[in-house]
C-alpha cells in the first residue's frame, strides 16, 4: 500500500491545491486502518504469545532476569510435569461434562420458556419474563451460602448434575432473552398454518419451529459452552473431589513443592494452553454465529 502511495506522489504535481488531503482520503485512511489493526493484533496477541512461550520454556530459564522471550531449547517438560501434578485427564473429562451438560440443559430449558414467552399470550407472561431477565443482575456470590446449604441438603454437592443445575440456571436469563428475540422474528403465520392443518402444539414446536430456530439454539449452545468452560466460582465452591473438579479449579491447585516461587508458572502456562485451545477451535468454527448471538442478546 505504502509503495503505491509513493509512486503516486511522484506522478502527481505537488503544487496542486488540496492534494495532501486528497491523498490522505485515498490512501492515508487505509494506512491508518492497517496501523490500528497492527496495534490491535499486538495488544490482543501478546499475552497469548507470552503464555505459549512460557509453556515451552524450561522452568529454570523461566526465572531469568531479564525474562526470556524465546527459549534456547523449547521443551514439553512443563506439560509432562503439569499432567503429573494434577489428574489432568479426569479434570478435562469433568470440564467437558460440566460444559456440555450445562449448555444443553440451559438451551433446552430456555428454548421451552422462550417459546411460551414469545408465542403464547397468558396473564403474567410479562412479569415472568421480566423476573427471569432481571435475575441476571443477582451476583452469584450473594446467594452462595444458602445455595450451598440447599445443595447439601439435596446431596447435590460434589455431583455433576448439581454443578450442571446451578451453571445452566446461571446462563438461563441471557439465553432466554436471545431466544425470545429470535423466535419473535420468525413469522407466526407458518405455525398458524400448521395449526389450521390440525397439528398439535407439540408437533408445531418440534416439526415447524425447531428446524427454523436450530441455528440460534446451536449458537447459544456454543456460547454457553464457552461460558461454562471458563467458570471458576461454582466448581471451586461446589466440587471438592477428583470426580467433579474442572480444569479451572485445577489451575488454582497447581503447586510445586520443589520451587520456592509460590505460583508454578511453568505448569500453569502449560495448563492454560490446554484450556485455551478448545475455545480457539470453537471460535474458528463458529465465529460468525457467536458474534451474531452475542450482539442479539445484548441489543434486545
Amino acid at each position: 500500500m505504502s509503495s503505491q502511495a509513493a509512486t503516486r506522489s511522484q506522478m502527481s504535481p505537488q503544487t496542486q491545491p488540496g492534494y495532501r488531503s486528497a491523498l490522505f482520503a485515498r490512501y492515508g485512511e487505509s494506512i491508518l486502518v492497517y496501523v490500528c489493526f497492527a496495534l490491535f493484533v499486538v495488544v490482543i496477541g501478546l499475552p497469548f504469545y507470552f503464555i505459549f512461550v512460557s509453556s515451552i520454556t524450561p522452568s529454570t530459564e523461566l526465572f531469568n532476569v531479564p525474562p526470556t522471550y524465546w527459549p534456547s531449547i523449547p521443551t514439553l517438560d512443563n506439560y509432562a510435569r503439569m499432567v503429573e501434578s494434577i489428574p489432568f485427564l479426569t479434570y478435562f473429562r469433568n470440564s467437558v461434562i460440566f460444559g456440555v451438560g450445562s449448555s444443553a440443559v440451559s438451551v433446552i430449558a430456555a428454548g421451552m420458556a422462550a417459546y411460551a414467552l414469545a408465542r403464547i399470550r397468558f396473564p403474567g407472561s410479562n412479569i415472568i419474563y421480566l423476573a427471569l431477565i432481571l435475575s441476571v443482575a443477582l451476583p452469584q456470590i450473594a446467594v452462595l451460602v444458602p445455595m450451598f446449604q440447599t445443595f447439601n441438603t439435596f446431596r447435590l454437592v460434589n455431583t455433576h448434575h448439581g454443578l450442571i443445575i446451578m451453571m445452566s440456571s446461571l446462563m438461563l436469563p441471557f439465553t432466554i432473552m436471545t431466544l425470545v428475540s429470535f423466535i419473535k422474528q420468525v413469522p407466526a403465520e407458518i405455525e398458524e398454518a400448521a395449526y389450521i392443518d390440525g397439528a398439535t402444539t407439540v408437533q408445531i414446536i418440534l416439526r415447524v419451529l425447531l428446524p427454523l430456530i436450530r441455528p440460534a439454539l446451536f449458537t447459544m449452545f456454543l456460547i454457553n459452552f464457552i461460558i461454562s468452560w471458563n467458570e471458576l466460582l461454582y466448581p471451586l465452591v461446589f466440587a471438592h473431589n477428583v470426580d467433579t473438579k474442572t480444569l479451572s479449579v485445577g489451575l488454582t491447585e497447581l503447586t510445586d513443592p520443589g520451587s520456592t516461587y509460590t505460583k508454578p508458572w511453568d505448569m500453569m502456562s502449560a495448563l492454560s494452553v490446554f484450556m485455551i485451545v478448545p475455545v480457539l477451535l470453537i471460535i474458528l468454527f463458529g465465529q460468525r454465529m457467536i458474534i451474531s448471538g452475542l450482539a442479539r442478546g445484548a441489543l434486545k
Binding site: 490482543i44 497469548f48 464457552i226 468452560w229 471458563n230 471458576l232 479451572s248 489451575l251 488454582t252 484450556m275 485455551i276 475455545v279 480457539l280 470453537i282 471460535i283
Partner: peptide
C-alpha cells in the same frame, strides 16, 4: 479471543 478465554 479475549472474551472467550477463561478469566482464570
Amino acid at each position: 479471543i479475549p472474551w472467550a478465554i477463561p478469566m482464570a
